[in-house]
Design a protein around this nucleic acid. Structure first.
Length: 591
RNA sequence: GCCCCCGUAGCUCAGGGGAUAGAGCAUCGGUUUCCUAAACCGAGGGUCGCAGGUUCGAAUCCUGCCGGGGGUACCA
């Protein structure tokens, strides 16, 4: 159900007699900011008045007169300089709500034509523990995957692991010098993690996030181990093969906990053998050329070139990214490829895509879905108090623990007020804390425009008010509470939904909001912005809260009204749950 | 130097041609014979960085400036 589309089509028809190309004008239909202006507004009369040399209000009247209202629109109102204000008819809304209640997809139609996407996200270095920097890529990528799939697209997720880089040199050197063989045998994951941390402590502190730079004998030795690995050194390759399962297990623990799945995990090593051919081909086709001993792709005098082979013969990530494009196109023939990588790499992707187009991949939509950095409350890169990188596992643990504290606090306050409280079993409590804690972390990230840097704040994240996962989960819980308390089986409102009554302002507002679900998902998909889902969800939850506060459900005045409101409640719960699901966040029945 | 992004309430952020610029937090005040108070209602708080320009209309588009961040051939 896409109301804005429906109305735009009606304007398209109405404008036909006035102007040759009504498309752009019809597109000027949008939801209003304030209900007193109606539900939707058309802003085309003002600009059209200018081109036609007529008064905008007269033009507006003319358009309104010629508009087919169908059975969904009330008579339009002309307001201000020439706004055409539109209200949706309650009886029509009621029928639509009844219809979407029977629909598993809640009124969201599948897009046509569907596209075939490859989404590249998360991409951690597997030789070291995942840290907070990997959070955004993982969470946003997972959410976009869920969204695009729900809309009917095909999505192949591919985690481009850093499994061949300098980090492995550190592990190789560390293993050779400091391994505790027994510990490794007993628990390779833990022992490798220990070795990695030990290596970090040996290397100079002033290195960048990915653990590079700075002349340092240990770092230099580690680099040489990397070089030997790349050169095919038997011992190092063998060790690398031995490390990999443990490294993968380490990151898979995190993915399982976050509920994130990948169809493929083709890391850098997967493409390693293809690189020489690619460099040769690019040189033969005149796309790449030799410069200062390296093989580069140039982009004119203004931009620096992209290196595809260093003067020492080693390949770069640009090379393996090109190999990746070729492989993916050959294997999956996608229409679009999305890369969930932070904004600082904008130049790399701009060049990568330009190179790919020269290489013959111009027909594919290649997009860098960039995002800002995670900052601490001091607006500097988010670090532990000691200045270390915050490991993702520890971060998630803390979120869950804090969720538990919030629960305790709330329980205490309820007791002080003399309220009855439900005693939850420890297993249910654990699950609630996990859902609330992880939900808070994910939501805080997803609800922000992905391009802006985001300031990490525990209190804000776990707040019970405002645009947070907790608020949404709580709205859902209170909703489910109605059905539990009333002993009502929600299935009825999905199999044989009654026709709801849309009478008061709260019911009406909720109805409009429920019918906007598809609109909001489409907006989120076009912009690749999960925050469009959270904005919608926030509006829906607030509207529902107003309804909950003002419209008794179980104690409604009449049986008919009770049925009607139960339907509205159940639909709301389902839409909230679906939105959260698209964000990768779980709901719980009680909290 | 060059390129990119950002500057909106005390703080964190929405809004990216349309009506008096919105939320949350914080501050102050109120709400429970009623379906979970992890809730709700109300109040105060703004030269939308500055200056020009385009437009019927600019926080939004263009130009310049100021301030902040990032990137800028051999790490990914």
């Amino acid at each position: 159900m896409n109301i804005v589309q429906l109305i735009q089509n009606r304007f398209q028809d109405a404008l036909h007699s006035l102007v040759a190309d009504p498309g752009p004008l019809a597109a000027m239909v949008r939801p209003t900011q304030d209900v007193k202006h109606g539900d939707y507004q058309a802003n085309c009369a003002m600009s059209l008045g200018k081109t036609l040399g007529k008064k905008p209000r007269e033009v507006a009247q003319e358009i309104a007169d010629g508009l087919d209202l169908g059975d969904e629109l009330e008579k339009p109102e002309i307001a201000g300089p020439g706004f055409i204000n539109l209200r949706i008819r309650p009886d029509w809304m009621a029928r639509q709500l009844q219809a979407i209640a029977e629909d598993e997809r809640l009124g969201v139609s599948k897009v046509a034509p569907a596209k075939n996407y490859v989404i590249d996200f998360s991409s951690p270095n597997v030789a070291k523990p995942m840290h907070v920097g990997h959070l955004r890529s993982t969470i946003i990528g997972d959410s976009l995957t869920r969204l695009l799939r729900f809309l009917g697209h095909t999505v192949i997720t591919d985690n481009h692991l850093g499994d061949w880089g300098t980090q492995f040199g550190m592990l190789l050197y560390g293993y050779k010098h400091f391994v505790d063989a027994k510990a490794f045998e007993a628990d390779p994951v833990r022992e490798l993690a220990r070795i990695y941390l030990h290596m970090r402590s040996l290397m100079k502190a002033d290195e960048d996030e990915e653990g590079n730079k700075i002349p340092d004998p240990v770092a230099e030795a580690a680099r040489q181990e990397t070089a030997k690995l790349h050169a095919g050194d038997v011992e190092n390759v063998q060790l690398w093969k031995m490390f990999m399962p443990a490294c993968l297990e380490e990151i898979n623990v995190i993915y399982r906990r976050l509920g994130v799945q990948f169809d493929h995990m083709h890391g850098e090593s997967f493409y390693n053998d293809m690189l020489p051919d690619i460099v040769r081909e690019l040189e033969e086709k005149g796309i790449a050329e030799r410069s200062k001993g390296a093989m580069v792709i140039s982009f004119g005098a203004k931009e620096p070139p992209a290196l595809i082979q260093k003067s020492d013969g080693a390949f770069t990530y640009a090379t393996s990214d090109l190999a990746t494009i070729r492989y993916r196109v050959k294997t999956w023939n996608p229409d679009a490829m999305l890369y969930l990588v932070g904004s600082p790499q904008a130049l790399h992707f701009k060049q990568l895509f330009a190179a790919a187009r020269r290489w013959g991949y111009g027909q594919i939509e290649l997009e860098h879905i960039a995002f800002g950095s995670v900052l601490g409350e001091d607006r500097k890169p988010f670090k532990t108090r000691e200045g270390g990188v915050i490991e993702l596992g520890a971060l998630l643990d803390e979120a869950v623990e804090r969720a538990g504290q919030v629960y305790e606090q709330s329980r205490k306050e309820s007791l002080e007020r003399g309220e009855e409280i439900v005693d939850l079993g420890s297993e249910e409590r654990r699950q609630i804390e996990e859902a609330v804690g992880l939900g808070a972390v994910k939501y805080a990230d997803l609800c922000q425009n992905r391009l802006t840097d985001y300031v990490f704040s525990w209190p804000k994240m776990l707040a019970m008010n405002g645009n947070t996962a907790t608020y949404m989960q709580y709205a859902y819980v209170r909703n489910r509470g109605i059905f539990r308390k009333g002993g009502v089986d929600a299935a009825k409102y999905r199999n044989q939904p009654p026709l709801p009554k849309i009478d008061n302002e709260h019911e009406r507002a909720l109805a409009v909001q429920l019918l906007r679900f598809e609109e909001s998902l489409l907006a989120a998909a076009t912009e690749y912005q999960p925050s469009a889902i959270t904005s919608y969800l926030w509006d829906l939850a607030k509207t529902y809260s107003g309804f909950f506060q003002n419209c008794p459900v179980l104690k409604a005045e009449s049986e008919e009204l009770r049925e009607s409101r139960l339907l509205l409640c159940d639909l709301t719960a389902r839409v909230i749950q679906k939105c959260l699901e698209l964000l990768g966040i779980r709901t719980v029945e009680r909290m």
